[in-house]
Amino acid sequence: MKRFLSLLVLLVALTSCEEDVKFNTPAVQGLKDNELWKATEYSATLGVGGALTITATNGFETVVLRTVSSTPGMSFQLGVNDSNRASYALEADGLSFDYTTGTGLGDGLIEISDRPGETNFERGYISGTFRFNAVDETGAVVNFQNGFFYKVPIAGIE
């Protein structure tokens, strides 16, 4: 009887284990004011001279990252000029809040990944990291940290 009970417990333990692995590829997410923020829709576009715009939204909130270049391995400081910038917008219940970086506004960094397999223009995707503090017209700040965009599809050229 002990063998039967042991075998039954072992059988139940083995059959109740399952792997429910979900891959998050592609993705745009980060910590917004220390809470997980995750986009449900995202795209990247290339502009004149290789300028990059990444747009990510979850329906009510939108993050836009802009850089003057999409060259892998490059880093772009935010808060120094209006060419490299990040913005965050929240629209819900008729209210709208807009935060941005720019010349003398906020700070941060956007980095384009040069790791093999993460950024590939021939296959049409780009990856990298970001962090920023963006400011609204009243001086309120929204903070994004540990942000990344991974294999975001390049939708086209502006």
Rank of each mutant, 00 (worst) to 15 (best):
E35C: 02
S70T: 06
Q29C: 02
G139H: 05
L78A: 08
Q77T: 11
D136V: 05
V141R: 03
W37Y: 07
T15H: 08
V9M: 15
A27E: 11
N143D: 08
T40S: 12
E137M: 10
L90C: 00
V142G: 04
S70F: 09
T40K: 07
S75Q: 14
E118A: 10
D82E: 15
V141T: 15
V68S: 14
L10V: 14
A155E: 13
V21P: 00
N84S: 13
V12D: 03
E19M: 09
T53G: 01
P72V: 07
N84F: 03
G147V: 00
K22I: 15
T67H: 06
P72M: 01
R123P: 00
F60E: 12
S75H: 06
V21C: 00
G117Q: 05
G128V: 04
I110F: 12
I112F: 12
L36M: 09
P72W: 04
L5A: 14
A92R: 11
L78G: 09
A56M: 04
T119R: 05
T40H: 00
F149L: 09
A89H: 01
V28Y: 06
L90Y: 11
T25D: 14
L8E: 08
S113P: 10
A13G: 15
Q77D: 14
D114I: 02
A56T: 03
F23Y: 15
N120L: 03
V9S: 12
G94M: 06
S96V: 06
G59S: 08
R115P: 04
V12T: 15
G59F: 02
R66I: 14
L5Q: 11
D114H: 10
G106A: 11
S83Q: 15
A134N: 06
S127P: 11
T15K: 11
M74L: 14
A44G: 10
E158F: 08
F121V: 02
F76G: 08
E41A: 11
C17F: 13
T119L: 01
G156P: 01
D107M: 10
N133H: 12
S87R: 09
N143C: 08
L5H: 00
T40A: 07
A92N: 08
G50P: 05
F4K: 10
V64E: 13
A44M: 05
E61S: 12
L36E: 03
E91W: 00
P153L: 01
V135L: 06
